[in-house]
């Protein structure tokens, strides 16, 4: 099977300081990859390089495009990359304010990606928005409200709906449950897991929260100081960590 994403020797430095170095991995369709590590481990830098938000120094990010088969995203022109970013790719930010238009209604937020790829029928766009609000458990009566009137958990669910409405083939998530209350986190996590399973989504989830990856990720990559120090099936890595650092990470979460 052709990998959906094939990352080779990705390296990014900030003026001599290492962001991430020599990262390689493959992601197959329908797979969810968790990337864990403490802040400063390079996991966010890696995610932003993969998603095209930061230009890496070296490496390849080969994506199996719908039309042209495997292509190095880093070698694409900016218009092509931006087109990918609003069609086949989606990015869920930790802070929903970074991923939503706060002055646009919930329906407009969900509909934007549809309109960006040419949807020009108001009734159909609104129908899709209603469907997606329902899927992320936002009541239809809120469709014309602005996200500023929503709770943090609702904003995050709206951001997810806005991202998934065009049926992306790869979803990047940056600490999707970060900054939320524990009870809200649990509900959001259940929702994301349900969507991932039902839609067969391929996703890369960056988090410092091992509970998130235990629930969502099929495979795990552990990062420290910009390097991948351990990879494996999620249960394997969490139940029988090999690297001393991973052991520390796992044991500290168990103590919580």
């Amino acid at each position: 099977m052709t990998p959906l994403l094939d990352v080779k020797s990705l390296t990014m430095t900030y003026g001599g300081r290492i962001g991430c170095t020599d990262v390689s991995f493959t992601l197959y369709p329908g797979e969810v990859l968790g990337i864990v590590g403490e802040s400063g481990s390079g996991k966010s830098t890696l995610l932003n390089c993969l998603a095209g938000h930061l230009p890496p120094d070296r490496g390849e990010v080969i994506f199996d495009t719908r039309a042209g088969g495997p292509r190095d995203v880093l070698a694409m022109s900016e218009p092509e990359r931006r087109m990918l970013g609003r069609t086949d790719w989606a990015f869920v930010h930790q802070n929903p304010r970074d991923g939503l238009r706060m002055r646009v209604s919930a329906g407009g937020n969900v509909g934007e990606r549809l309109m960006a790829v040419g949807a020009r029928h108001y009734g159909e766009i609104r129908g899709a928005a209603l469907d997606w609000l329902d899927r992320v458990e936002i009541h239809e009566s809120r469709i014309d409200d602005r996200p500023a009137a929503f709770s943090g958990g609702m904003q995050q669910r709206l951001q997810i709906a806005r991202n998934l409405v065009t049926g992306p083939r790869l979803v990047f998530m940056d600490e999707p449950t970060g900054g939320l209350d524990v009870s809200v986190q649990a509900r959001l996590l259940d929702l994301i897991r349900g969507l991932v399973r039902r839609m067969g989504l391929s996703a890369i989830v960056v988090t410092h929260d091992l509970a998130v990856v235990r629930l969502l990720a099929d495979r795990l990559m552990v990062m420290k100081d910009g390097r991948v120090i351990e990879t494996g099936l999620t249960d394997q890595v969490l139940d029988d960590p090999q690297a001393p650092y991973t052991q520390l990470l796992v044991s500290s979460v168990l103590q919580v």
Binding site: P79, R86, G107, G108, G111, E112, A116, Y122
Partner: peptide
């Protein structure tokens, strides 16, 4: 809808005009 000049220039250059219809969508919904 997009106050950043750098971003609006890019949107014109790349013909990314979905946002214009978001404005009209907002009109109709309201």
């Amino acid at each position: 809808l997009e106050p950043r000049e750098t971003e609006t220039r890019k949107m014109h250059a790349l013909e990314e005009y979905g946002l214009m219809h978001v404005k009209l969508y907002e009109d109709i919904s309201r």
